[in-house]
């Protein structure tokens, strides 16, 4: 669906992107991770045809975004880093405009826009001027704009930035919902968000793709399982007991919130049921378990590893 071929982008003397190639299959939700200045926005701007690459090209559904704009962008929705809102328009007018730009049939525009506003929680704001919206609602309006015309490819540049926690959850679930049957690329620096939503993750650093991984086999491929454990017992002998457990590689003490509690991050070898082993041990010692969870921190480790290379 999306085919990025050897794309480089040079601003004066600096390369913002360096020979980036990426192929995204139809129906994939892909997360683009990277530090500030890694080149995420640049890549997305090139992908959507806003910028031209210095070398290389981008095909959307087989059509070149720059040479065949009408063909290639027919199925594209883009939420740029800064939502592209016209201050003098109301939410409703704006979305109707966006829908018209994307060639939605004139008769079906009002219904289409109503649907999208409902989806993005904008219905009660529809007659407000865009310049009067709060930051979170501006972001939503930008998101709604990207959904106009029911595009098959959604490109979102840091969609949850600037939102309050409730809105973040809402937008995430919206991305999840939209991701069904569509191709979505979004950038973020929030690892948990990427982990939660994506099928595939690309880590961009200094304008180069460092790692591409599929979230489905990522967990298997990492050799370790991390478990976060909090027990109602003072540190004492408990750490060495856990350390002595079969399959444990490493125990890291974490700061605990209350006296009389111990929190630790336990790294197991790839093996079955670490939770069961811990439970057996602790129930034998009659120490209550306050918290026990698997830490999916492997992405974080991968990320740090990728960018430190």
């Amino acid at each position: 669906m999306i085919d990025i071929q050897n794309v480089s982008k040079r601003y004066g003397a600096v390369y913002a992107l360096h020979d980036v190639s990426l192929h995204v299959e139809k129906g994939t939700v892909l997360g683009l991770l990277g530090q500030n200045g890694a080149g995420k926005t640049t890549l997305l701007n090139i992908l959507t045809g806003y910028l031209a690459p210095t070398t290389g090209r981008v095909l959307l559904d087989g059509a070149d975004v720059l040479l065949e704009p009408e063909e290639a962008r027919r199925h594209l929705g883009y939420l740029p880093e800064q939502p592209p809102l016209y201050d003098e328009m109301t939410v409703r007018e704006y979305l109707r405009y966006a829908a018209a730009l994307r060639n939605v049939e004139k008769r079906s525009i009002p219904g289409h826009v109503d649907e999208i506003m409902e989806l993005c929680g904008l219905s009660h704001m529809q007659h407000r001027l865009l310049s009067h919206l709060s930051k979170g609602y501006r972001q939503r309006a930008g998101f709604a704009q990207a959904l106009c015309g029911d595009p098959e490819v959604l490109v979102l540049d840091e969609p949850t930035v600037g939102l309050d926690p409730k809105q973040i959850v809402e937008i995430r679930s919206l991305i999840q919902k939209m991701g069904k049957g569509r191709t979505v690329i979004f950038s973020s620096h929030i690892l948990t968000e990427v982990q939660q939503l994506c099928d595939e993750v690309v880590i961009l650093h200094d304008g180069k793709i460092k790692t591409t991984l599929s979230m489905n086999d990522e967990v298997d491929s990492s050799q370790n399982i991390n478990v976060l454990l909090t027990v109602a017992a003072a540190e004492g002998s408990i750490v060495s007991r856990v350390n002595g457990l079969e399959g444990v590689r490493k125990v890291q003490l974490q700061p605990s919130r209350r006296d009389g509690q111990t929190t630790m991050l336990i790294t197991f070898h790839q093996q079955n049921e670490p939770e069961r082993r811990l439970f057996a041990l602790l129930s034998g010692l009659s120490i209550p378990i306050l918290h026990l969870s698997r830490e999916e921190s492997s992405l974080e480790q991968l990320f740090l590893k990728a960018i430190s290379e």
Binding site: Y78, P80, Q82, P84, L101
Partner: peptide, 13 residues
């Protein structure tokens, strides 16, 4: 205002 990002990425020549 960066609204050109909407226009220039729309299926409009």
């Amino acid at each position: 205002k960066k609204t050109d990002q909407l226009l220039m990425t729309s299926p409009v020549s």
